[in-house]
Simulated scan of single mutants.
Amino acid sequence: MLLQSVETGVVGAPMAGGPTTPELVAAVGEAGGLGILAGGYLSAPQLAAAIADVWDASSRPFGVNLFVPAQANAYAVGPGELDGTERAQAVAAYRDLLADDARSLGAEPGEPRPGDDDDWERKLDLVVRERVPLVSFTFGLPSTAVIGELRRAGIETVATVTDVEEARAALDAGVDALCVQGAEAGGHRGTLDPLKQPCDLDLVDLVVAVRAETQAPVVAAGGIATHERAAEVRAAGANAVQVGTALLLTPEAGTGLAYRRALTDPAHQRTAVTRAYSGRLARGLETDFVRRHDGHAPAAYPEVHHVTVPLRRASAAADRSDLLALWAGTGWRAARAVPAATVVAEFAG
């Protein structure tokens, strides 16, 4: 299997929204790791162009990560805290609350766009047509029919899970491997149920618990900031480690200038887990925006994401980090402005 044959045992995280570029994926692959393109938020044509760019830049195998939309999630999701009219009202109230923030940037909050499927079906067709070597999934579990279609096309599948129960469900659905995401991870928590309280086990303990359930390949993700931590996670049973925050300052990453400066700014003292930017729990640098709005954001993804996108884009365009979603894991201070190949070598097994 591909994940067991990655010579360095290092996977480049699929960081959606710009940081994971085709250049970064290719650089991780050329250094002996496995790069994974972030398909989330891209249209199918945009993802097709990114895949072509990776093929052009490298002969190494790579993967594509897809967000599983709510309507395609085969995981047994519990009852929602908000449904129908109540959910729409909560999102509308949050949108109104952000009006002053938007005006400070000369922008307007976006429209909620409930039911957005992130171009799911066309992206599935694309990865099959392009024979992408590996496809990973986040935010949900695809159906056994989808997993079977990918397997028949010779594509390996990986599910992002955050606890043992989710790992069992993913294995029962037929995925080939697991990305086990710990509480320390930057960016969105990959819970299969968006309203579920994520597991808070230390990553090492979580890997041990999942490894007791299966011999399938396991990629460990979350706050891995040193070679020693990577070795500890491997000793617990992980076949590979996935790094994301450690790659944010590399020249190959698409991390914006304001985002890069924020990662090295001593004024940022901690990370926080918040729904303020997308309606889903995610870890990033704690900002005034998070402190002001975290308690008001409803658990409504992707609606909240679409509402805040214009604010984040305007903040980036103004070279201000005020309203940016500064996704980062707990080990963000160890990130360095070095080539991606240097990062892969640092975490190699």
Score class of each variant (00 low, 15 high):
153 A>R: 06
148 G>C: 09
166 E>F: 11
216 A>R: 14
251 P>A: 04
144 T>F: 05
152 R>F: 06
231 A>R: 15
203 L>Y: 02
216 A>M: 05
157 T>Q: 06
185 A>D: 00
207 V>I: 15
262 A>C: 03
251 P>N: 07
233 V>F: 08
192 L>K: 13
235 A>N: 11
248 L>C: 12
194 P>V: 07
159 A>T: 02
169 A>R: 14
151 R>P: 01
206 L>S: 03
198 P>S: 07
218 V>E: 03
161 V>D: 03
152 R>H: 13
227 H>L: 09
208 V>G: 01
211 R>Y: 13
218 V>C: 01
228 E>R: 14
230 A>E: 03
188 H>K: 04
169 A>K: 08
157 T>E: 05
235 A>I: 10
256 G>Y: 02
239 N>W: 06
232 E>R: 13
218 V>P: 00
163 D>N: 15
258 A>N: 04
263 L>F: 03
249 L>T: 02
226 T>R: 01
199 C>S: 14
249 L>M: 04
183 A>W: 15
217 P>R: 02
241 V>E: 05
162 T>M: 15
161 V>W: 13
241 V>Q: 07
205 D>M: 12
150 L>I: 02
261 R>N: 13
177 A>E: 10
169 A>E: 01
182 G>A: 10
228 E>H: 12
244 G>S: 08
154 G>H: 12
176 D>E: 06
148 G>W: 15
248 L>S: 11
